[in-house]
Write a protein that binds this DNA or RNA. Structure first.
Lengths: 214, 214
DNA sequence: CGTCATGCTTACCATGTGGTAAGCACTGAC
DNA sequence: GTCAGTGCTTACCACATGGTAAGCATGACG
């Protein structure tokens, strides 16, 4: 048997290739052949593991969903202080999607290409996650640490979308600033999310860096 | 000549249909035939006005870009007070894209499907718009009306993206709240943008509505 | 009346696509 | 050794798609 040098497993290889290609070109514009080429096998080799292109799509998405199903509960329970919890969840959000932008891209594409499916996901299995986070925000409002006029659920959704879009399109938007683009974008992203949630004085855990420009 | 009842002009009709279809399914997944069907003519009738599918795509995009080329300068010059200017630009941003979500969708799709092209657009013809807005923000920082640690250019890009994504995917995310979804999403959108830009006391033009929930 | 351009129409085609059918090499179980 | 199952391979196909080619009706213009 001729073990392909770069192909320990066709199935996982196809999933990785599909994530890349679906993210870059979109599901419909990606022939199975392209996935197969990337893995270094024939189209039918891929079709053997995923009887249908649709199966391949599901596989890719499940890989992403699985991460949050096991990570989020842990994050929410681990941190105790309000701001620590924010940093933990927000940080993981940025980290996970920035680690591989293609994850953010496929999620955005799904929202555009299959709105009904994503809506079902959002109002079904994903809702508990969002509600849990929103619940913590409301608790922070009671404790006068957050702005009272924050609409918790909606805030969570907006921030989630902002992170997804910012990460997904960084290669495009990042070209607008010359140096340190990545750090500036990340920082402003976090700043916007925080400044619109935490009351000014509640941010005492943030080191009072007064050395703003001017 | 048999004038189609609903078709005053094939060319503009095709552009409108293409905007709808490209937004919904994506450029690659939309056959010219689908556009033709929507207009009520044959595929070749469409190909007569747009020699290539690519021409159709350009036409759709130019329609969107044209709006901002003529609107933005006017908006920026019209308002004088800092917050009025913000409201004018931000309001028009939301209004224009919410008026037809498909506009937001095609823009997002372009960023995903043709990053190089969009990057060229952003660093070329669009940059002056962004710089102009960023310039006003920096002026607001000098005048102590805005947070000093706002990264003006990056803030503008993030807010732009947030609006685009929020509008484009409202039919998906809006299902998360039961009633008044549209108003709540719009309001939180504006709140996040403003709360992360304006210093708390600088917001005196906003009526002090203390009647936040509880 | 003839000529020419415009705005289509019908015919057609090369290509790429998702998927089916069937066979074949190899492996382990018995 | 045989048998069955796994993981492919080659062959093939129906179909959709972007685009070309060429003709044809209509109206403006001379």
């Amino acid at each position: 048997m001729v073990a392909q040098v770069e192909t320990p497993d066709v199935k996982s290889g196809a999933l990785a290739a599909a994530l890349r290609l679906f993210a870059a070109r979109g599901f419909d514009a990606t022939p199975i052949q392209a996935v197969a080429d990337e893995v270094g096998v024939t189209k039918q080799a891929v079709l053997h593991h995923f009887p249908t292109k649709e199966h391949l799509r599901r596989g890719v998405l499940e890989g992403i969903l699985a991460h949050w199903n096991e990570t989020l509960p842990r994050l929410l329970l681990a941190a105790t202080a309000s701001e620590d919890r924010f940093d933990a969840v927000f940080g993981e959000l940025v980290r996970f999607f920035a680690e591989d932008r293609d994850r953010a891209r496929v999620v955005l594409r799904e929202a555009l290409d299959r709105p009904d499916e994503v809506r079902a996901l959002l109002t079904g299995p994903v809702r508990p996650w969002l509600s849990a986070v929103a619940q913590y925000i409301r608790a922070g409002q009671e404790g006068e640490r957050h702005f009272p006029d924050v609409d918790a659920e909606v805030y969570v959704v907006h921030v989630l979308q902002l992170v997804l879009t910012a990460v997904a399109s960084f290669p495009v938007t990042g070209a607008l600033v010359e140096k340190d683009a990545r750090r500036r974008y990340d920082r402003e992203l976090a700043r916007i999310a925080k400044a619109s949630l935490f009351l000014p004085h509640a941010t005492e855990s943030e080191k009072p860096r007064r050395r703003g420009k001017r």
